[in-house]
Design a protein around this nucleic acid. Structure first.
Lengths: 252, 252
DNA sequence: GCCACACCTTGACATAAATCAAGGTTCTGC
DNA sequence: GCAGAACCTTGATTTATGTCAAGGTGTGGC
């Protein structure tokens, strides 16, 4: 259960693909949805130089824990991470799922301590971006400063959409919205928008959406019966995208 | 229903207090909880020079509306503002109440359009902070950049706390938490932590907390019966702070 | 290849909060 | 100071989702 981020003695095995460890922002396929988005080539190199890449996290390992001192934000390179809060009375609330190209950890900036715990849902690689370096570089590169402000702002609007979902929508609408969100985010990464494997358990989905496992399971059952989804354990196929949007209440 | 922010021909009436219109960040009593928090005297003056103050908003007037082009963030100087999202199907979700010293409008940075509508709950004065100026100044003043990153981060963690509240807590716990939040924010402004007037309606409270008006009203009734609160319409007195914390589930 | 455990599904029942309904109170404009 | 509107309260009833319970399925370790 050790965090391996600082482990640097990794030697690529002969004959094994090592591109993960030679990756730079400039040639990363995710850079169109990640931090370097709006940067010029020279600026990307500067950003690249502050980013630390490391060995992948295994399923169940922690990227950071609630109350840990905050020092970096992280970009997911591969895999999937869940972030969750633990309340005083020990209950957990999943606040987000992070897929490749997405940034997490910004909730620690305000207090210098992480306000949530981040855990790998499957084997995942992340880029660590030391915040102090990011701050300095941001002051020099207006487009980076702007971009980071925008990322944080988007995190705010996404949280507010989740607030609305939890407060106003039925179990079916919530699950449909999550499936659509994952579908859209897959499409952005040039993956199938209609056929994917969920990295998280039903418990995690329920926790994120404010529902019990049983309810999530029943909703999947109903959607399957309505031929909107085909659900085979964690394999999801969206059979009727319009129907799913209608269920999510996104189609007038 | 006009927004009066750009109205500048105000002439102080003789014998009427005009200090609102001569206020600077340097002498503002709220500056310990507002933007200038960590700035040196010279820097405060620079910040002060970009801030636009204006005539107060009357109750019901809009500071900005969802979809409006984003150009500024706002600090509340007096009164109270509510922010809410309107969904595609016309339902509203209150995402926050903003009191003096608090900053709103940051949800517009990500897309250059406001993601919510901000409406005055009572006569309110605000300071308008043009974002382009704030960005430029932030690049020059590291402590301002840091402070603004922190403000956005705190907005994220607060939204995540609301997510947890909506997802995991009962009606009583939600209402108790809101009362405590208002009490704590009042204390920060050197106002009474135990006796205050709610600027928002029961409908707004219910909307914010994901409850109906009837439920909110019944919860207040119950708390009154338990001698935790004294509720006289919008006048609230916290009779038993410990009891309220226990109800909010914040006391082990 | 099998055991154990975590994960998922389905059914029966309980319940918190929503909905529906009616009446009371407070505020606002004239 | 009055009329109308907006706001708030309280009661009776319904309902979506939670809880409890039991059994099925997939998966990783040995």
């Amino acid at each position: 259960m050790t965090i391996r981020l600082s482990d640097t003695d990794h030697k690529p095995e002969p004959g094994r693909c090592v591109h993960d460890y030679q990756l730079h922002c400039g040639n990363c396929q995710l850079n169109s949805i990640c931090l370097p988005l709006t940067l010029e080539t020279d600026d990307v190199e500067q950003l690249d130089s502050i980013i630390q890449r490391s060995k992948p996290l295994q399923k169940g390992q922690f990227l950071y824990r609630q109350e840990d001192a905050f020092s970096s934000v992280y970009a997911v390179r591969s895999g999937a991470i869940k972030a969750y809060n633990t309340t005083d009375d020990g209950r957990e609330q999943v606040t987000g799922f992070y897929f490749p190209g997405e940034i997490l950890g910004m909730d620690g900036i305000g207090t210098n301590h992480h306000a949530s715990t981040a855990k790998a849902l499957e084997t995942s690689a992340v880029c660590e971006i030391p915040f102090s370096s990011l701050e300095k570089l941001s002051a020099q590169l207006p487009s980076l400063q702007r971009h980071f402000f925008q990322l944080m702002s988007r995190e705010i609007t996404e949280d507010q959409q989740l607030i609305t979902l939890l407060s106003k929508n039925s179990a079916d609408e919530r699950v449909a919205s999550l499936m659509l969100s994952i579908s859209i985010r897959n499409a952005k990464r040039k993956l199938s928008a209609t056929h994917f494997r969920l990295p998280m358990s039903r418990v995690d989905i329920g926790n994120y959406l404010g529902l019990t496992v049983e309810t999530v399971s029943r909703v999947f059952g109903r959607m399957q019966k309505m031929s909107i989804l085909s659900v085979d354990n964690k394999e999801i196929e969206i059979l009727d995208p319009k129907g799913l949007q209608r269920l999510a209440n996104l189609l007038h």
